[in-house]
């Protein structure tokens, strides 16, 4: 067990290095750079050269190694767009907000998705199943900005406390979280329904019933744990995506989160901020996948022996 997780943990730096390299190549090959200005505002070549030197970006080669060196020392570099802001400061301001919303969204999606999915699988072809599958298809079909707009209008009118565009009470977290939760909820619901339906007709469930176990014992002790395994592996990427912020939801609700920086950094060719946000996102993704792996090993004994072999 320790072996498998240790080996996976040791791969993390290699994966992150690969991601850094690929992102770097893409970032510098995109036409345009942060020092370019339109027309008459163009910087004199001398000044551009000086700026490049200041940021350690004389050429791509020095940029790659210097930035890597700084990241290893825990410094994500300076934003080239926002003067006097370091990338670490920008991320430290946005990430907690995005992470809080994302965490809430994932919890909502997980609880309601698995619950509805399991209930639907247990009552296939009945009304509950129809309701659950309708929620699922609505969830994958409704764009995030539509559900966000509905929540924004609906609740601003009926619950005046939740007026639009404020960001100071914990209640403000709720609506963006619900808007962000809808798509993963629908996905988890489908996954759970599908895998529970498969588990419920499997041989070992028949064995459990042949022992005379009650329906509740069969479901809780035998079906659910097996039926939730596919959801678990989806959870890593979903949590990383939700917690590093969604541009759409954050824009509609005026949330000062991290999501906006993903978009703006590319549009502004803010090369260091692009690299910094990607590294933060990828680190979270890799860590969450590692956690999911760990949880998998605890739940499914078959994994451990495979790793030890």
């Amino acid at each position: 067990m320790l072996n498998r997780i240790t080996r996976r943990a040791l791969q993390v730096p290699i994966v992150l290095l690969a991601i850094y390299t690929v992102t770097f190549v893409m970032v510098v090959s995109v036409p345009g750079n942060p020092f370019q200005r339109e027309g008459s505002r163009a910087l004199p070549p001398m000044l551009e050269q000086a700026l490049r030197q200041r940021y350690g970006m004389e050429n791509n080669w020095t940029f790659y190694w210097r930035y890597l060196g700084r990241v290893l020392q825990g410094d994500l570099g300076e934003s080239l767009q926002y003067d006097n802001w370091s990338c670490s400061e920008i991320i430290a301001a946005g990430l907690p907000v995005s992470a809080a919303i994302g965490l809430a969204a994932i919890l909502i999606a997980l609880v309601f998705g698995t619950l509805l999915g399991a209930i639907a699988a247990l009552h296939r072809g009945r009304l509950v199943d129809l309701v659950a599958t309708s929620i699922a298809v609505l969830g994958v079909s409704t764009p995030a900005f539509v559900i966000a707009a509905v929540l924004l209008i609906g609740f601003s009118v009926t619950v005046p406390v939740l007026s639009a565009g404020t960001w100071d009470s914990p209640l403000d977290l709720l609506r963006p979280a619900v808007a962000l939760a809808l798509a993963p909820l629908a996905y988890i619901l489908r996954l759970t329904r599908q895998s529970m339906a498969e588990v419920l007709v499997s041989d070992f469930i028949r064995t459990a019933r042949a022992k005379g176990l009650s329906q509740a014992a069969v479901i809780w002790r035998h079906a659910l744990r097996n039926g939730l395994l596919p959801t678990l592996s989806y959870l890593g990427p979903a949590a990383a995506a939700a917690m590093t912020g969604s541009f759409i939801v954050e824009r509609v609700f005026n949330v000062p989160g991290l999501g906006t920086h993903f978009v703006n950094s590319v549009l502004n060719r803010d090369q260091m901020l692009i690299l910094a946000t990607v590294l933060v996102y990828s680190t979270m993704l890799v860590v969450f996948n590692l956690l999911v792996d760990l949880a998998y090993g605890l739940i499914d004994p078959r994994i451990q022996s495979k790793g030890a072999a």
Binding site: V15, A241, F262, V266, V278, Y281, V286
Partner: peptide
């Protein structure tokens, strides 16, 4: 590796 990058970032 491409899977490890934020999807929207790639598109942009």
């Amino acid at each position: 590796i491409l899977y490890g990058l934020p999807y929207v970032l790639l598109v942009i």
